[in-house]
Amino acid sequence: MSDWIEACAADDIDEEDVLRFDHAGRTFAIYRSPEDEFFATDGLCTHEQIHLSQGLVMGDIIECPKHNGRFNYKTGAARGAPVCVNLRTYPVKVDDGKVFIRMAD
């Protein structure tokens, strides 16, 4: 079981927005939903390795900035062409105003 890694302050991300977090040679995207919950996924789109953190969050959807591939960032589910491979998601917790994610091995 991996440890929780501190990613950012909760206030670093607006509601319905996304932030890039790089750690140990990997890149992640951390989301704050309109309901003020936090989520984390792999940082790169499964279509062409584009950073999702420059994309647009609408409701529970992140849209890739390059080709508008859509994912539900809460579940990682791909939501239509051109993406057909789901995003990997990671557990997130907020503690004392800080956002932590737990990476899989």
Partner: peptide, 11 residues
């Protein structure tokens, strides 16, 4: 540079 304009163009 990169996808700097993507989000605002999408909006």
């Amino acid at each position: 540079p990169d996808n700097a304009v993507a989000r605002d163009v999408r909006l």
